[in-house]
């Protein structure tokens, strides 16, 4: 935290530098508007964002479900916490809101494969030809999560989310290694998607519901959304820069 003041300063300086640059650009053909639109705006970072250091006062209204049932949510919450567990490095998937992130993603175009080619005919292909199924991501999740519950029930007589961590790992490993056969999709394919989506939820901008309070970025000392690194690009070592999110970028 000691570096905070310094970093505020450096970000202000770099902003001034852009403004100088933009004035230069306007001298010729005007080719861009972002630089111009920054003119006259107060650097948002100067105002400490709420909820950064003080305990959270207002509820996070984003933490509700758009797609999952309550049971599906509990399975995903437990599974992603095993994929990315809380440890000495810092928070795990649960504290970072990863299951909410995945819920919100599946509710929209990603869940519907809206920008993927989903036209028939469907044929099983070679591995190098990529996914050739007709199921959309949200359907794969529904099938995969149901099977995680079925498998946990048949093997341990418990819900997946009530299992001991080692037992949860054993279930996940069975999916990873395709020891479980799903009728319409591959268990390992589902598991791979779950791991990918977990990492997305840990490290995507907090606007998507994960990476709560930018704590995912803090794990990697990643500064998030910064205007410029021109001042540090030549410096040795790892500069400590307080992270900023896309929210910090909006002027109100």
């Amino acid at each position: 935290m000691a570096n905070q003041e310094e970093n505020k300063d450096s970000s202000t300086i770099s902003r001034r530098k852009f403004l100088a640059n933009s004035g230069y650009a306007i001298g010729g053909l005007v080719v861009g508007g972002v630089l111009g639109s920054l003119l006259g705006r107060e650097p948002k970072q100067q105002t400490p964002a709420p909820n950064q250091s003080a305990p959270q006062q207002t509820p996070d209204f984003n933490q509700a479900l758009m797609f999952f049932t309550q049971e599906q949510f509990k399975v995903v919450d437990a599974a992603t916490e095993r994929i990315f567990p809380k440890d000495d490095n810092g928070p795990g998937a649960r504290d970072l809101g990863v299951a909410f992130f995945i819920d919100h993603q599946l509710a929209g175009e990603y869940g519907f494969n809206a920008r993927d080619y989903m036209q028939p005919p469907f044929f099983p292909g070679e591995k190098v030809q990529g996914y050739q199924g007709r199921l959309r991501r949200r359907e794969i999740y529904e099938i995969g999560l149901r099977e995680m519950q079925n498998y946990s029930m048949s093997k341990y007589k418990k819900n997946f989310y009530d299992l001991a961590p080692e037992e949860q790992d054993a279930v996940l490993t069975a999916f990873e290694k395709d020891e479980i056969k799903l009728t319409t999709t591959s268990a390992s394919g589902f598991f791979k998607m779950l791991v990918t989506n977990t990492l997305e939820g840990v490290y995507a901008d907090p606007l998507y519901g994960g990476n709560k309070n930018m704590s995912g970025w803090n794990l990697k000392k990643y500064p998030g959304n910064q205007m410029s690194y021109a001042n540090i690009i030549e410096k040795e070592g790892l500069p400590q820069i307080k992270p900023a999110s896309l929210r910090d970028h909006l002027s109100h």
Binding site: S22, Y24, G27, G28, L29, L35, M227, S228, Y229, A230
Partner: peptide, 13 residues
Amino acid sequence: PDGVARAACQYCG
């Protein structure tokens, strides 16, 4: 040469 002016890179990544 066409008179188009552009600003320097900020190494934002």
